[in-house]
């Protein structure tokens, strides 16, 4: 009896001693954007599973930001627009991993030329108002001297915009980004401006997190950064293979479209000094950026 008791006690100590608290799951709220392809790739390859990191794919940046705002995610992909908005609302968001900057990935599509737009009585503008789209359209209006009073702004997310039945006679502008542009271009829209040629706008895509996660889980964040770097390397070196893996996350675009999309961004996971200096003005603090 005494021996059995000792055995049970030993077993109890052994099992309870060997068990350890599981790492708390990290949830990344993101959306369809070619610049987030490394996250999708890492997730599909299982790199993130090892780190107990899962991703929630949303239809727009705004939706992704909303999940972070309400506490359903503790990491989020943002442009500087969502970053500033969330910083204002939650007071707790820190950019830690730079992913890409848009190099034509964000764009303005139209069914009319610039001249036709100037002559139009009314212009319907579809965009996600509460996103970088707003900065892009403002810059577009200003750059092309268009009259904002003629414009009617329709706030819809990119998924909704895809389904809109546009009237050909109506002068229409759509602020979108890759890969949503592809479907719209098939409907007859064409690019009238993009981040490739809008010099005033640099769209920075970054992965942000909470101060608590940064403080207590730095090790996993470093591992995440390594996984992203590794994924970017694969995407760059073998785009075809990566396309097969992640195409379901980017509207099943073709390989050609995939290559075009990749051309519309530049990876900034290993940022230059100049870029770091530049984005420091946007409150992206170098000390937190994992390089």
């Amino acid at each position: 009896m005494y021996k059995i008791f000792l055995l049970l006690l030993f077993s109890f100590i052994l099992f309870t001693g060997c068990s350890q608290e599981n790492e708390k799951e990290i949830t990344i709220s993101t959306n369809q954007w070619i610049g987030y392809a490394p996250l999708f790739y890492a997730y599909e390859k299982g790199y993130l599973d090892k780190l107990n990191i899962k991703i929630i794919n949303n239809v727009s940046l705004a939706e992704a930001a909303e999940l972070y705002r309400v506490g359903k995610a503790n990491m989020v992909t943002t442009t500087q627009h969502e970053y500033n908005m969330l910083k204002h609302e939650t007071q707790d968001i820190i950019p830690i991993i730079l992913l890409d900057r848009s190099n034509g990935g964000d764009m303005v599509l139209s069914n009319k030329s610039i001249q036709e737009l100037h002559s139009a009585d009314k212009i319907y503008v579809y965009l996600e108002v509460d996103s970088i789209n707003q900065e892009i359209i403002r810059d577009f209006i200003k750059h092309n001297g268009l009259d904002i009073k003629k414009m009617t702004f329709i706030n819809q997310d990119q998924q909704q915009i895809q389904d809109v039945k546009f009237k050909k006679n109506r002068a229409t502008l759509i602020v979108t980004y890759t890969p949503y542009n592809i479907h719209l271009e098939k409907k007859g829209f064409f690019e009238v401006a993009s981040t490739k040629n809008i010099d005033a706008i640099i769209v920075i895509d970054a992965l942000c997190t909470t101060s608590e996660l940064l403080k207590h889980d730095k090790k996993r964040l470093l591992a995440l950064k390594r996984s992203i770097d590794k994924s970017i390397d694969v995407i760059m070196k073998d785009p075809k293979a990566s396309h097969q893996i992640i195409k379901k996350y980017i509207s099943n675009m073709s390989y050609r479209e995939y290559l075009t999309s990749l051309d519309s961004i530049k990876w900034i996971n290993k940022p230059s000094k100049e870029l770091l200096n530049y984005i420091s003005d946007l409150d992206y603090k170098e000390e937190y950026i994992i390089q």
């Binding site: 108002v129 509460d130 707003q134 403002r138 904002i148 009617t152 702004f153």
Partner: peptide, 11 residues
């Protein structure tokens, strides 16, 4: 929670 809406581009 915050209810944000836009009148054109004005929040």
């Amino acid at each position: 929670f915050q209810l944000k809406f836009y009148n054109n581009l004005d929040p």
